[in-house]
Design a protein around this nucleic acid. Structure first.
Lengths: 109, 109
DNA sequence: TTTTATCATCGCTATATTGCAATATTAAAT
DNA sequence: ATTTAATATTGCAATATAGCGATGATAAAA
């Protein structure tokens, strides 16, 4: 139905999946990479490098912002976005521990 | 449109986003955790622990399998799934290096 | 060979997501 | 006060996804 039955999963599972989901779009990966690359926070306008309409970029930025991974500040009539240090590291370590749960058990099946 | 414009992104970006996307559903997270927990590969039937219909579980398993993260072998009339060691580690390191690209630059904006 | 058990696939419905043009909104600049 | 620039939001169309019942397919068991 396109409707995930999130009630039947743990909070942690839903949260982790939620993070992955936000990262699960090339435009959002590209946007994050741009923000990272240009040491300073960049204006969403510049992101038109990506070849997507302004509305589309803005939408993706909102999703990233909602997840907490990035934050934005107004400066004049432009908007500066940057990685949220704390959230980034938290997400990074949560994902790392998900992957670490599996210690190469040389499992075959 | 529900149609991602993947042509405008790099192969790497698309691939990484693809991995994240597969992991972006709590059922698939739960399935992977089950497979990991029960050291041996488990039968999808058992996954009915999750409270989803057999068809639904099977579908998620196919997606995980398509991504390469898990592999399955037939044994009698049941199906054994397990993590694919190599792919798992590859994915793990690709994701790790994505996150490492950002070295906490104490960036504020 | 008929059952039974275990999966995968099909077909369908309902919801979600992507993308964009058009339209607000806001603030600097004139 | 108007204009301009930069974003966000709204509304819409098209595609994608989640979920499930029903149906196939396959192999062990009876």
């Amino acid at each position: 139905m396109g409707l995930t039955k999130s009630e039947i999963f743990s909070e942690k599972q839903n949260k982790l999946a939620g993070i992955f989901k936000v990262l699960g779009h090339p435009a959002r990966i590209a946007i994050l990479q741009q923000i990272i690359e240009r040491k300073q926070c960049i204006n969403a306008g510049l992101v038109a490098d990506l070849g997507l309409a302004q509305a589309t970029i803005s939408q993706h930025l909102q999703e990233l912002k909602k997840s907490g991974i990035i934050k934005g500040n107004i400066s004049g009539n432009s908007m500066f976005y940057c990685i949220d240090n704390e959230v980034w590291n938290e997400v990074k370590s949560e994902i790392a521990s998900f992957f670490d749960a599996y210690e190469s058990q040389n499992s075959s099946c």
